[in-house]
Nucleic acid binder design. Structure first.
Length: 283
DNA sequence: ACCAGCTCCTGCTTGC
DNA sequence: TGCAAGCAGGAGCTGG
């Protein structure tokens, strides 16, 4: 679900509240998400201060004063929201939590970070902060789009050996980190490139256009607070707004919004996932 | 090395 | 109306 813009929006919402705070208590309501929680997970969090809140690809990274980093992935349906205010322990101990409220992290200040994830494709784990970049979750990740790494040349280089359709290459996290199904479709439309085109056939000029399109779409989506289709909300529970600006995603049958193009948006299936594009202007 | 396909899980939408 | 199949924003694993 949440792609880079949604995760970045959650990060921006959480950072002012979490950074500098100490974790008072952690409550796990099951023993695993997509993967098991690490040994003594709650104990390794309790009493620790959160020193930074960063993002890599679609992962949130909370660096702790213990030298470990709490790694969080929202999967398809994960939500991280801030609950409660003054009455410190109330939320943590309350009954009647939702069936999918899996983890509660109560801060010394009294607020509570709640992780809810119906499909349980998300994960939480702990990784030594100085070993993050070599950890198996991170070592294969590709270019980080909002950090200036995503240049036309770098992208062309990564795509050069790939025999997959462009769309499949774009959602491959070892090429560009953080792009998922929605923003891949949007970026390809903006770059006027067909999702079916073979990745390695991209010339420098097209690769540059695609690199720029990905960066622009993601940046605009972050500005809009992400896209809310069904599950995604910001940390305060409010929705994002970028879905209203989709050019192609979930718009099969509609007229292509590109000026001067009279095409109709089509939905096809690639590698088992929906792709939306305009066959007229995307080549 | 690379790639397509399958899989985990729940809930909403669609079609009979 | 009711029920079952199909589908969903992710990504690791398998086998070719």
């Amino acid at each position: 679900m949440p792609e880079l813009p949604e995760v970045e929006t959650v990060r921006r919402g959480l950072a002012p509240v979490l950074v500098g705070q100490r974790i008072a208590e952690v409550r796990l309501r099951r023993k695993d998400l997509r993967i098991p929680f690490p040994p003594r997970f709650a104990k390794r969090l309790e009493g620790r201060r959160i020193e930074r809140l960063d993002r890599r690809a679609k992962y949130l990274l909370a660096a702790l004063d213990s030298g470990e980093t709490l790694v969080i992935h929202l999967g398809m349906s994960g939500q991280l929201t801030l609950e409660g205010g003054k009455p410190a322990r109330r939320y943590h101990e309350r009954e009647g939590l939702g069936a999918h409220d899996h983890v509660l992290i109560t801060l010394e200040g009294g607020r509570c970070l709640l992780f809810n994830d119906p499909r349980r494709f998300g994960l939480m784990t702990l990784v030594p902060t100085d070993k993050l970049s070599t950890h198996k979750l991170f070592h294969r990740l590709g270019l980080e789009p909002l950090d200036g790494e995503l240049t036309g040349a770098a992208l062309q280089d990564l795509l050069a050996k790939r025999k997959t359709p462009l769309k499949a290459a774009l959602i491959d996290q070892s090429v560009i980190a953080g792009v998922g199904n929605i923003y891949a479709c949007e970026a390809l439309h903006r770059a006027r490139l067909s999702p079916k085109r073979l990745a390695r056939t991209l010339k420098a000029e097209s690769a540059a256009r695609l690199a720029a399109a990905v960066s622009e779409v993601l940046a605009e989506a972050v500005e809009a607070g992400g896209s809310t289709l069904r599950d995604y909300v910001r940390s305060d529970g409010s929705p994002g707004y970028f879905q209203h600006r989709f050019a192609v995603y979930d718009r099969a049958g509609e007229r292509c919004p590109r000026e001067g193009c009279r095409g109709t948006i089509r939905r096809i299936v690639q590698a088992g996932r929906s792709t939306f594009y305009c066959p007229t202007c995307q080549r």
